[in-house]
Amino acid sequence: MSEVWSFFAEPLGYAFMQRALLGAVLIGAVCSVLSCYLVLKGWSLMGDAISHAVLPGVVLSFVLGLPLAIGAFAAGLFCAVATGYLKENSRVKEDTVMGIVFSGMFGFGLVLFSKVETDQHLNHILFGNMLGITPRDLVEVGIIAGITLLIVIAKWRDLLLYCFDPAQARAVGLPLSVIHYGLLVLLALTIVASIKAVGIILVVAMLIAPGATAYLLTNRFSRMLMIAAAVAIGSCVIGTLLSFHIDGATGPCIVLVQAFAFVLAFLFAPRHGVLAMRREQRPTA
């Protein structure tokens, strides 16, 4: 018992761990909410694309002395808009266009980084640096997470209708393009907020795993939001603590815990889990 207690209590004695855990809760909450929409809309690749495309924005804003969040946000949005434009104006399919745009931007970011003198570590940008999160970073993450959560809480039904049935969204007079780009903006914001925690490469896990896990556990969207939040916040906290104890990289630890949660749901979900479906197919002898 005392070991379980010290698993949680010991890290909390350090200020950097307190900040890391607070950051983990904020980032987990905001990612989980977005992940529900991404999973249902089939935008997983879009999440991956925007997160990679953020790199040149991060480097450029460093060069220009701007907050990293601004450059990252602009680059992420550019990726989404460029993808949309290329898709509309060529015969190439969306996933292909996306692949070209984000890998191109990621490559550009890497080249830029190698040409610029900075005190930043590429590893921290790519894989996150949760334990190095500063009070200023926390404020930044808090503002972004707050805005995103507020918008989603106010508009979750409209966003849901847009994902489920765009034609009906139009029929009840919702402005489709506002919602479409609004969702992209929220996605870009969330990615920017999460880079500190898990980095550009792994952020996609935060944006998919909680929603996917929750999707296996419920048939109602309102519950899916809550389950996803619980899964994401729980994984972020446990992953951060785990990394402290095993002295491993924090971002990958969080992602690992999330993947583990998904596997559990995949196996044991009461209705949509593999075991439950097996049981249903084979009537008890």
């Binding site: 209708l161 489920f164 049935d165 009840v172 007079g173 109602r220």
Partner: peptide, 15 residues
Amino acid sequence: FPVLVEDVVMMGRYG
């Protein structure tokens, strides 16, 4: 999609 029958019909009322 994780929506119930009544959720879908409610989508007609959004306007």
